[in-house]
Design a protein around this nucleic acid. Structure first.
Lengths: 241, 241
DNA sequence: TTTTATTGTCACACTATGAGACAATGATAA
DNA sequence: TTATCATTGTCTCATAGTGTGACAATAAAA
């Protein structure tokens, strides 16, 4: 969703944006305990949705997504991947959009481009949870973190989009260096394991995981982390450059 | 690309189709020796392109692709997967489209929807080579098979689309039952191996491949195939239902 | 009957993984 | 100071999967 600048009811086709096409992003972060995603809540509607937006006529699709993420998170160079295109007619629901616009004082005509059908390109992003203070956009009250398994009801097919993003992330887990994007620069093996567990939704064997990660030859072992607790201090690691 | 029914220069936005969005499909077939894809050649232009098209306003995206494939191949129930969305501004080239339309006797206005920028959703499809006699559409001279490594020059970014489709097919090779869609009902282990080799672009070990496929427990062993050649007759297999 | 090319299967070495054992360690309690 | 505790790093063993080559079985030709 995007804030309109001038007369919101105008029917200029696309209003500088490509029509019939949108994007939605599933932004994953790891709190230290749980896997979370960013959700927006629209003013005076009780509607929750994924952060998304539209593509400017002179803008690359991928750049449009990065622009949206920059606005919400303040971050550049976010790890970003395409995930799936949702293009069923059943996802078109003008009433939802109309409600959101009306709740913000806009009264769009029936043929307004925002009420038309959209095919949406779903992305997932991985960001470092602690680096971010999410910002809502003009139509939203909030943009905040939600536990991946404690999500509120979402508009349209956004629940399916989250499921697809999580599924894609899982299947990419062994190929891509997921941990690098979700953890701070230095982390313990336990934290890395917890990231994997929260994505996969299952417990992993400590010894097998440790052996596998070390054998990948992607980690640099740094000093030890003294927690003040009554047990052995774990090593800190960072990813090799 | 799609044939226009009436006055091709009309500027009715979208003309019953979603604007700014298209699809292109990389249709793989296995000739028995080589991996091939379907390409269209446009009338009087020398332009080669992937079979693609547009999405009707009341049509699911995936259904639009199936409709296009049905028109070109006559097949229903084609194995089909999304692959990537190509959305850079640099892929917009009105001149190419104008040339194609003019070569077919159409003279579209500068603001015609077909000359606008398109974001395209790339798909790959797997079909049984021998079941198909490809048909060109109204704008094309031909729709025929080309060796995956002997392709002519393609319009726009279609070369990149082919590369992405092949890459996606390769990375899905171990997950999905690729052979089932590219081979006839009954086949030898050698033929199955050659499908894998032509997709991966490399030779595989005969014994390892055979052992792996048999251990997957997806093949049913049928009779033997007597080739008339001077050597042992191989077993025929089919996929278990 | 012998030769030839190809196929089906096995043996061996090596690697990856599941599962548990155990010593090392940093703090707390006695 | 010593004993206890939770956690961590590493090892061993069994099992499964894969790379590699060997070898016998076969169908047709010589």
């Amino acid at each position: 969703m995007r804030s309109k600048q001038k007369n919101p009811a105008e029917d200029i086709p696309g209003d500088g944006f490509l029509t019939n096409i949108a994007y939605d992003s599933v932004v994953f972060g790891f709190s230290g305990e749980k896997l979370k995603i960013l959700l927006m809540e629209y003013h005076n509607t009780g509607f929750f949705a994924l952060p998304g937006g539209f593509v400017r006529r002179n803008e690359n699709l991928n750049d449009a997504v990065r622009r949206g993420l920059k606005e919400r998170t303040g971050l550049d160079n976010i790890y970003l991947e395409q995930c799936y295109v949702f293009g069923d007619t059943s996802r078109h629901n003008a009433q939802v959009l109309k409600t959101i616009l009306k709740a913000n004082g806009y009264n769009p005509g029936a043929s307004h481009w925002l009420l038309d059908r959209f095919i949406t390109v779903a992305y997932y992003a991985l960001i470092n949870y602690k680096n971010v203070v999410p910002k809502p956009d003009a139509l939203s009250d909030s943009c905040t973190w939600y536990d991946i398994d404690l999500l509120p009801e979402l508009i349209l097919d956004h629940k399916d989009i989250v499921a697809k993003a999580l599924q894609t992330l899982r299947s990419n887990l062994d190929q891509k260096l997921v941990g690098m994007n979700l953890l701070p620069v230095r982390f313990t093996m336990k934290e890395l394991k917890e990231v994997y567990e929260s994505i996969l939704g299952e417990k992993l064997r400590r010894t097998t995981f440790q052996r596998k990660m070390l054998n990948l030859d992607i980690l640099k072992r740094l000093g030890k982390q003294y927690s003040g607790k009554a047990h052995k201090a774990p090593y800190l690691y960072s990813f090799k450059k």
